[in-house]
Amino acid sequence: MHPVLILVARRVALGVLLLWAASVLLFAGTMILPGDVAQSILGQSATPVALANLRAELGLNDPPLTRYLNWLGGVLQGDLGTALTNGQDIAEALGRRLGNTLFLAATAAVIAVPLAIGLGLLAARYRDRWPDKVISTFTLATVSIPEFLLGYIAIFFLSVNFRIFPSLAAVHEGMSLGERLYAVSLPALVLVLVVLGHMMRMTRAAILNVMESAYVETAELKGLRPFAVVARHAFPNAVAPVVNVVMLNLAYLVVGVVVVEVVFVYPGMGQYLVDHVSKRDVPVVQACGLIFAAVYIGLNLVADIVSIVSNPRLRHPK
């Protein structure tokens, strides 16, 4: 078998193992938390009989291993359980929320990734000259400002003062794509500003690192245009570090948007998670945690596979 396939298969297997470990941790973590779910559902005034009944109904009296296996078995079949607080099917409620979060993340990513790489290339091309300084300072500033503050600044200027975009990112079923995009414009803008800096800086650093190498000098001595030197000779060798940081930021766009979703009252995963954490709704927290872990591990898996595949030494062994 081709060595790259072996490496990729090994990496995928490691990802699955990691995801399983995450599920164990999530389950164990919610077990360690103090308090009793039945108690918190029924409140302080519950009778002992009612508590015992509810515990039996929820399966809280089974040994932990049985409960874990039941839960895992359900998850593998797409059944994430029922929310304790309102009795809704988690998979169904979560599905809509996840869809919203992914839509927002994708909107931000489609703008941020090409923009960041483009700005990174530009900054590398004009290293230490004014375009580089402007880009670096601007992205550093947007990374440094906390995202909720960025959100309120954006609301203040763009929806209160100039009334261009809506301050509440309310979406509902039956909206057209254009309406949806318009609704999420401000949170998307904030997310773009937050993730731009990392990706741009890594692109700039990776390109500059490669530009120092002898093969770039060879390319320059062939009389190639500066753009051809960067695009054909420098960029292919800078892909791996750039993809890594891009994937980390994409993961952030999915799992780290809690604050931004709350600021814009956007009905995504983050809001859903925050609501249920405060209500101690364990099955929902577990389900959200598992999905976040899957997104994180999955995207980093993609980054690693791209690194493996973009390495000619691995792709074409001796």
Binding site: E217, K222, R225, S310, P312
Partner: peptide, 29 residues
């Protein structure tokens, strides 16, 4: 200068291992 580099004058470097782009086939370069 670009028009003459690689056409009228070319360069052979000391370390060919470093002077070739590792990501491209030899013929391409």
């Amino acid at each position: 200068l670009r028009a003459l580099r690689g056409k009228e004058a070319t360069y052979v470097a000391q370390s060919a291992a470093a002077a070739f782009n590792p990501a491209k086939r030899l013929m391409e370069q």
